Simulated scan of single mutants.
Amino acid sequence: MKRLSLLWLGALLVAACSKQEPPPEPVRPVLFIEVKPESVQSLGRFAGSIQARYESTLGFRVSGRIARRHVDVGSEVEQGALLASLDPTDQQNQLRAAQGDLSRIEAQWINAQANARRQQELFDRGVGAQAQLDVAQTDLKTTGASLEQARASVGQARDQLGYTELRSDHAAVVTDWKVEAGQVVSAGQEVVTLARPDVKEAVIDLPATLADQLHEGVEFRVASQLDPSINTTARLREIEPQADSATRTRRARLTLAETPAAFRLGTSISVTLSSAIEPRTQLPLSALWEHQGKTQVWIIDPQSSTVSPREVTVVSREGDSLLLGAGVKAGEKVVSAGVNSLKPGQKVRIDEETPR
């Protein structure tokens, strides 16, 4: 009887041991990355400068030797300001000659008038001949025409003398001199370049391939290279239709939304191009779990500290990273390493976020 009781007790102990629950799975530490979708695509950053929208290159209307340059590059000039002058000797001589011709013809005009009046009086008294009167009147008309011509010549010579002074036709900034004092220039030759400072724009050179892909949704952000905190947005005003044969770039001119005071003419700027896109998320390639023909990632539930797989849409893969188009939401935590050894519902411990 005692032996039977011992056997019964042993059987109970074995049964009790067989019903014990298996030990819980250990909590696995995992690395993660927080989802931060990007809705803007960067198209690149390019260097440029602030330039005036309106520029004009002036030249003398007569030829001659430059006697003096009255302003330097960078000078601000008002409308009518004297920029440069030619040696006026030739034009002064021409004016004096024209004035001398005018004085001579004016004297002839006075004599012709007196002669015409005298012949008219003689003819009225019946002692003058009609032929002499006709000659006097014809001479008067001829001399009058010569007088008008001489006056026009004086006016033209005076204008030519005035053309020896090059003046600004509007308020501007001198940006370039193309000649030096003492140099002989011809009429119409480029002498000085003026820029109107009231309307400024950003100018950059874009690769021809990128310029062909620009559309209305592209945003331009213009910042000073010396102080990036000084910035504004801009829109494309015009782009050259033909690429430069040497650099294969096309010049683009941008209209500024605002013009900070620091954006002076010639200021070096940095222009960033970006375009709105459908939200996309960049993850390390190690976060992707490809199983049974599906592309998935492991999502961490912060409440239960468990993981679950979720199917995602891969837009592209490049190097050690990939772009997801759909499947994850902003703020969610995705396991970034060791995805092949996880199980649905497995307990995890978040150690640290994987740097991007």
Rank of each mutant, 00 (worst) to 15 (best):
T259V: 12
T259W: 00
P260R: 02
F263I: 01
F263T: 11
R264I: 12
R264V: 12
L265N: 13
G266W: 02
T267R: 06
T267L: 08
T267V: 13
S268P: 07
I269Q: 06
I269C: 10
V271S: 14
V271D: 15
T272K: 12
S274H: 14
S275H: 03
S275N: 07
S275E: 15
A276S: 15
R280D: 02
T281I: 10
L283D: 05
P284E: 04
S286C: 04
S286A: 05
A287Y: 01
A287K: 02
W289A: 09
E290N: 12
E290T: 15
H291S: 15
H291G: 10
Q292D: 15
G293A: 11
K294D: 10
T295S: 11
T295C: 05
V297D: 01
W298Y: 05
I299K: 02
D301G: 04
P302G: 12
S304H: 04
S304W: 01
S305C: 04
S305P: 00
T306S: 08
V307H: 00
S308A: 09
R310S: 14
E311V: 11
E311G: 11
V312E: 06
V312N: 03
V314F: 06
V314E: 11
V315F: 11
G319Q: 00
G319F: 02
L323I: 07
L323Y: 13
L324C: 14
L324K: 07
G325F: 08
G327L: 07
G327A: 06
V328G: 10
K329A: 12
E332N: 03
V334S: 06
S336I: 08
A337F: 08
A337T: 09
A337M: 05
V339D: 08
V339A: 08
N340D: 14
S341P: 09
S341F: 02
L342P: 11
K343F: 13
P344N: 05
P344C: 01
G345S: 15
V348Q: 02
V348K: 03
